[in-house]
Simulated scan of single mutants.
Amino acid sequence: MDRKDPMVSFIDKAEKQTGKLTVLLNDLLDVTKIQEGKLQLNYGRFDAIAMVRESIEEVRVQGGAHNLVFEYAEGAEITADRARLEQVINNFLTNAIKYSPNNDRVEIQCGIAGGQFCVKVNDFGIGIPENKREFLFDRFYRVQESSTHFAGLGLGLYICSEIVKRHHGKIGVESQEGKGSTFWFSVPVQI
């Protein structure tokens, strides 16, 4: 047996923990910026389909056995803050994977409709009780039943909501317990 295996395993675990701490710190910094009205958006024109595709690939590289199925319409040039919208998409994707441990398929759809760039991320996981959905985008809110099984502080969706609102967009969720959830957002193509 190779003596480096325990060290490699230790380093892998340390990298994962460092990544988790980085996400946590970034979330806390974003919440502070939001509360102080200092969350800045850096607008630019870009190919939104390419942005979504890159987000999907980034999540794929992070590991996991989920099949990420991407459906899109061609030609989606928008003016927005690319990094912040990527943050929303990454949150949706990682949540879809996290909350569907017994299903390996996540569907992502995006395109332009009615002057809005729309993204939907659909999982086939645990779903969300109807009486909890209206609170999902509140700061520090976590669905009680899932809190003990899944890590997180309840900041990700709150930050996503604020990013989308600052883009003059809309964000929402449709869900059925035991069958999965669809998180979506839309932002104007041109601000």
Rank of each mutant, 00 (worst) to 15 (best):
K4G: 06
D5I: 09
I11V: 08
I11N: 01
A14T: 05
K16G: 05
T18G: 02
G19F: 02
G19S: 07
G19W: 07
N26A: 10
D27W: 05
L29S: 12
D30R: 04
V31D: 11
T32R: 12
E36S: 13
G37M: 03
K38D: 06
L39C: 01
Q40H: 09
Q40A: 09
G44C: 03
R45D: 05
M51F: 00
M51N: 04
V52F: 03
R53N: 07
E54H: 02
I56Y: 01
V61I: 14
V61W: 06
V61H: 09
H66N: 12
N67V: 02
N67W: 10
A73I: 00
E74C: 06
G75M: 07
A76C: 07
E77F: 00
I78L: 01
D81F: 06
D81Q: 03
R82E: 00
L85Y: 01
L85V: 00
V88P: 04
N90C: 01
L93W: 00
N95G: 07
I97L: 10
I97T: 06
I97W: 03
I97G: 01
Y99P: 08
Y99S: 04
Y99C: 08
S100I: 12
N102R: 12
V106G: 12
V106E: 09
E107D: 15
I108W: 03
I108L: 09
Q109W: 12
G111V: 03
I112Q: 10
A113I: 15
G115I: 09
Q116V: 11
F117I: 05
C118Y: 01
V119P: 05
V119S: 06
G125K: 06
G125E: 12
E130R: 15
E134V: 14
F137A: 08
R139W: 07
F140H: 14
F140I: 11
F140D: 15
R142K: 13
V143T: 14
E145D: 14
S147R: 13
T148R: 14
T148C: 10
T148Y: 08
H149K: 14
H149E: 15
H149Q: 15
A151M: 13
L153E: 15
G154E: 07
G156Q: 04
L157H: 00
L157N: 05
I159K: 00
S161M: 09
I163M: 03
I163T: 06
K165I: 10
H168T: 10
I171C: 01
V173C: 13
E174L: 14
E174P: 07
Q176W: 12
K179M: 15
G180E: 11
F185H: 06
V187E: 04
V187S: 06
P188K: 10
